[in-house]
């Protein structure tokens, strides 16, 4: 993996969680910096130049969402927020404030490492002009140059909205997109409150690209948050 040796800053006030993350991330080849407060995180970001930040949203000295918004005004370092189940609103707000992804406590190491890999690849990855013309996901093929969608060797026809929706999710494969982010990007409006538009068109899209739309495998629902396209198979 190319990201071995990358620096991860974890901002977490629970010593036991820090201990487990230190071991898990260290073993995976990352250099781990720690901060127990937002104030300490501020210093660590300036001095340590981390490649990715793991941010717990329940810190004692402030609001991690506001911190993220503030941080995004001057830095692009990917942020993965960590929050408990039932705090979907927090997750959505953090993502809309500029966080790149989230993890729900408790989480497994495999999940954590997968998230870190995705955000690192996307932050250092190929820019749009060298992006491949064809994106492949299992039995789905998106030819961006020709606007062609092929599912299991058969061409399918998408409406313009469905096409935009699919390409947006595919370009961000592995990463969660909130309803608001999708509305903004696909519909280009800033309402951001009418998530049912996304749900309805996504349901139609699934019927066309999933082998069993009732049990989708390509586009995963993140309840209360948004959608995530499964990472493509490595070619």
């Amino acid at each position: 993996m190319t990201d071995v040796g990358a620096t991860v800053l974890m901002v977490e006030d629970e010593p036991q969680v820090r201990r487990f993350l230190r071991v898990a991330l260290g073993t995976a080849g990352y250099i781990v910096h720690e901060a127990a407060t937002l104030a300490a995180a501020q210093v660590a970001v300036r001095d340590g130049a981390p490649a990715v930040i793991l941010l717990d949203l329940g810190l004692p000295d402030g609001d991690g969402i506001a911190w993220t918004r503030q941080f995004r005004t001057h830095a692009a370092t990917p942020i993965i927020v960590i929050s408990a189940r039932g705090r979907e609103e927090d997750k959505v707000n953090a993502l809309d404030a500029g966080a790149n992804d989230y993890l729900t406590k408790p989480f497994g190491v495999r999940e954590l490492l997968a998230r870190i890999r995705v955000v690192l690849r996307q932050s250092s990855g190929p820019s749009v002009d060298v992006e491949p013309d064809v994106l492949r996901f299992d039995r789905l093929e998106i030819d961006v140059a020709k606007h062609r969608i092929v599912v299991a060797d058969a061409e399918v026809h998408l409406t313009p909205i469905e096409y935009k929706l699919l390409v947006l999710l595919a370009r961000n494969a592995g990463r969660v997109l909130t309803h608001r982010q999708i509305l903004k990007d696909v519909w280009g409006n800033a309402h951001g409150t009418e998530s049912h538009h996304v749900r309805v068109h996504l349901a139609e899209l699934r019927k066309k690209i999933e082998s069993n739309p009732a049990q989708p495998r390509l586009i995963i629902t993140e309840p209360g948050v948004g959608y995530r396209m499964k990472e493509p198979l490595k070619l």
């Binding site: 049912h196 739309p213 009732a214 629902t221 309840p223």
Partner: peptide, 26 residues
């Protein structure tokens, strides 16, 4: 409350528990 297709929630729930439910047929 939001407007949600019923099958989206069902599909998502099955997706999460897929491994534990296996090898039962769904």
């Amino acid at each position: 409350r939001e407007l949600v297709p019923m099958d989206e929630m069902i599909g998502s729930a099955f997706g999460r528990l897929e491994r534990k439910l296996a090898p039962r047929v769904v």
